[in-house]
Simulated assay, not measured.
Amino acid sequence: MREQTIFEIIHNMDKVTNNLIIQWNKIFYEDLGVSHILVLAHLITNGKSRPSDIAKTLGLTPPTLTHLSEKLVQKDLANRVVDSTDRRIVYLDITDKGIEMTKRANIEGQKLRRSLFEKLTDEERHQLLHIYKKLSNPS
């Protein structure tokens, strides 16, 4: 494969991702970014978690997660919970308000992705699905 073709694929993938983020910010008026929602989704899936574990799972730096956590706590979407056996350990846990926010974010995200993929024909969607499955297979 030509190097130029690989560059074009990567460039266009980045453009699609950036466009999705821009569109997300336009439709989701909660002063939260995608990373905030990913943290909340992690908490829904995994329950209360140590910030260092969340950072590692999501591929974020600890300072980035600290910044995201501050905003989530400030907006009452998450709270900090001190371990009952070791007060040095602090967990981040989701609130009911955080669960509702994540549900709304998922609904809006689904609408956004649906509108993106509706531009494709059925055959193009099948081809894209085949390509994504192939790229996500580790072997």
Rank of each mutant, 00 (worst) to 15 (best):
T5Q: 12
L72N: 04
T61A: 14
V34P: 06
A78P: 04
Q23L: 15
L60P: 01
D14R: 07
V16P: 03
I107K: 09
D31Q: 09
L60I: 06
L60C: 05
W24N: 08
T95L: 08
L92D: 00
L112D: 01
R87E: 15
K133A: 09
N19L: 01
L92W: 03
T57I: 03
N106M: 00
H67W: 06
V81K: 01
V82A: 07
L77H: 05
D83M: 05
T17Q: 13
K103Q: 04
H67T: 14
T45R: 06
M13N: 13
T66R: 14
K103R: 02
H36T: 07
H42P: 02
T121H: 11
Y29W: 01
W24Y: 10
S115N: 13
L116C: 07
R80T: 09
K97D: 14
A41G: 09
S84K: 01
K26T: 12
I99W: 03
L92Y: 02
I9D: 08
K56W: 03
S52L: 15
L32E: 04
A55H: 03
Q4D: 13
E70R: 15
I27N: 14
V90M: 07
N12I: 11
T17I: 15
E8R: 13
G47H: 03
L68K: 00
F28H: 03
K75N: 12
N19W: 00
V34L: 15
Q110H: 10
S84N: 00
V73Y: 06
Q127W: 11
D96I: 08
Y132V: 14
R88E: 10
I89N: 10
K111D: 07
N79W: 01
Y132P: 05
A105C: 02
A105K: 02
A55M: 12
S49W: 00
R114Q: 06
K133W: 09
D93I: 00
R50D: 01
K103G: 02
A78W: 01
E70W: 04
H42R: 03
K26G: 10
I94G: 05
V16F: 06
L68N: 03
S52H: 04
L129V: 08
E118I: 10
M13V: 13
E123L: 10
L32C: 13
S139G: 12
H67A: 15
G33W: 08
V81C: 02
V73C: 09
V16Q: 09
V16T: 07
K26R: 12
V82T: 15
H42E: 01
G98W: 15
D96N: 14
D83I: 06
Q23N: 10
L72H: 07
Q4Y: 07
L77P: 02
S52V: 13
I44M: 10
R80F: 09
S139T: 13
K111H: 08
G33C: 12
I131G: 00
V39W: 03
Y91C: 06
L128N: 04
N18D: 11
I6P: 07
K97N: 15
N106V: 00
K134T: 13
E123R: 14
T66M: 11
F28L: 11
L92T: 03
L58C: 02
T45V: 06
D83F: 06
I94C: 08
D96E: 13
L32M: 06
D93K: 05
I94E: 04
L129N: 07
D76G: 10
T95G: 14
L60D: 04
A41S: 12
L43H: 00
H36Q: 11
D86Y: 01
